[in-house]
């Protein structure tokens, strides 16, 4: 438990610092300035057995800190909050039984489930984030473009991270 707490706190700080210092300045100009938000890794990786109230509160605060750095009001907070709330549902649909009987561990996970989990989570997060950030019907086409490209970009970043940190089974 204690170990878990320290690990997650460190991840909180590192992901925020990296998001602000590095990833906010990465934008692919050929994909309509798509921006990656690998910081959602924090919400995706919060302990599975964490109390639901704590999960929601922590995700909200995480989003709020991002909002402070990007002048987006509460867009990040809302997006992280929705992602945290919907997380059990996404987990069930991507891992099925192994999540329900609580034998799931992020350290050793099958690739297929992981990809589904990350893709669905990222897409949900980005839909909320970009609709609230732009917040205008007249830019609906722009919003959709941003969601699609950024979600792709973010998912690749997050999956790469998983690939690099996962322990080698062989």
């Amino acid at each position: 438990m204690n170990n878990n707490f320290i690990g997650n706190s460190v991840r909180f700080i590192i992901l925020i610092v990296f998001q602000i210092l590095v990833f906010n300045h990465v934008s692919l100009s050929f994909l309509s300035n798509a921006n990656p938000y690998p910081c959602i890794l924090f919400v995706l990786l919060l302990p599975l057995k964490l109390d639901k109230l704590a999960l929601l509160s922590i995700s909200f605060i995480f989003g709020l800190v991002l909002d402070m750095s990007q002048n987006t009001g509460g867009a990040h907070a809302a997006a992280c909050l929705v992602l945290a709330y919907a997380r059990p549902l996404i987990l069930v649909s991507s891992f099925g039984l192994s999540y329900e009987n609580q034998s799931l561990k992020f350290a050793d996970i099958e690739l297929k489930g992981m990809i589904v989990y990350v893709l669905v989570g990222t897409l949900l997060h980005h839909i909320i984030l970009f609709s609230l950030e732009v917040f205008s019907w007249s830019h609906i086409f722009f919003i959709i473009k941003q969601i699609v490209f950024s979600a792709l970009f973010t998912s690749i970043c997050v999956l790469l991270f998983f690939g690099l940190t996962q322990k080698n089974k062989s």
Partner: peptide, 23 residues
């Protein structure tokens, strides 16, 4: 919490009223 976040978002889109969350 969602309501709180939405309130902050709406407020940030009005000129000169973004009082709480800023860089």
């Amino acid at each position: 919490l969602l309501l709180l976040a939405l309130a902050l978002t709406v407020q940030s889109h009005n000129y000169h009223s973004n009082k709480f969350i800023s860089s």
